[in-house]
């Protein structure tokens, strides 16, 4: 206890009004997200997935069978990142997204740190914005890691320079990478929609597990509902409806209709999720 000196000269900084600089808060938030061991582990796992798929693809000769796009991938390495995104976007990416969103508000609440942020004070709307940026950054990183690992694995392990599209045309490397980037961007927006909804749930509870359960559970429910023909009318509003359309970037010319519909839908979800999170935070007793 000897070190507990009670009189310390205050820092010489000039007192100013107004909240802490926005970007300093964002930087601190990003540092926090990226220092969390399990987030790093998740990114590593996601990076390994395309490597695994690529290896399996070259070791086994399973042309013509397996999940869709699998056949198109043989000797066509740049399909791998798109295929990896399609595979992970159903469960793994939403899981990682929900995990980060759960930490963002519910987790902070559970640790008692949310109080600290509000008492600093970080304004409530600003806090939701900062948290949304944190979740979005993690999504971009996760999608980016899969894409990058997919491209590298595809080009080195699976082979092929350029891309044979589903329509049978051959694209040179540049435009082919453009297609992959398009798929990644689209996937990131879809995940942002998941993240926004998860953030809204996160604002409403202090149990991080509940956020993950609700988010992933919701996606599974969508999957179940899609199987019922008499619930067809629900399809246009279900986030997952056009998720398989990500492979449409591999058509030539790009089959854009479903991609655009999916994009619009995701943006609606983002608006709803972010608004709900803000509304909840603004009125929340913490």
């Amino acid at each position: 206890m000897n070190g507990m000196v009670s009189r310390v000269e205050p820092p010489s900084g000039v007192r100013r009004n107004g909240p802490a600089p926005f970007w300093r808060v964002v930087r601190s938030e990003l540092g926090w997200v990226l220092r969390r061991p399990r987030n790093l582990l998740a990114l590593f796992g996601l990076a390994m997935l395309p490597v695994l798929i690529g290896t399996v693809l070259t070791l086994t000769d399973s042309a013509g069978s397996g999940p869709s796009l699998f056949a198109a991938m043989a000797g066509n390495g740049l399909v791998l990142p798109v295929f990896s995104l399609m595979m992970t976007q159903n469960l793994l990416l939403p899981l990682v997204t929900a995990m980060v969103a759960a930490d963002a508000l519910a987790g902070e609440s559970a640790h008692g740190t949310l109080r600290g942020l509000l008492l600093a004070p970080v304004g409530r709307v600003r806090l939701v914005t900062v948290k949304a940026i944190g979740v979005a950054s993690m999504i971009v990183l996760a999608v980016g890691v899969i894409t990058l690992s997919g491209v590298l694995t595809g080009l080195t392990v699976v082979g092929g320079d350029g891309l044979v599209t589903l329509s049978g045309t051959t694209l040179p490397l540049g435009p082919a990478l453009g297609r992959v980037a398009l798929a990644a961007g689209w996937c990131a927006v879809q995940m942002a929609a998941v993240g926004a909804v998860a953030l809204a749930v996160s604002a409403a509870t202090e149990h991080p597990l509940l956020v993950m359960a609700v988010t992933v559970g919701g996606l599974i429910v969508f999957g179940v509902l899609e199987a019922f023909p008499n619930l067809e009318w629900l399809k246009p509003v279900m986030l997952t409806t056009d998720w398989y359309s990500i492979s449409d970037v591999l058509s030539d010319p790009i089959r854009s209709q479903d991609l655009l519909t999916g994009l619009w839908r995701a943006c609606c979800y983002i608006l709803i999720g972010f608004s709900a999170a803000t509304a909840r935070m603004a009125t929340k007793d913490t």
Partner: peptide, 9 residues
Amino acid sequence: CAAVEPGLF
């Protein structure tokens, strides 16, 4: 905590 503290620069 310091990053979100308005009084520190």
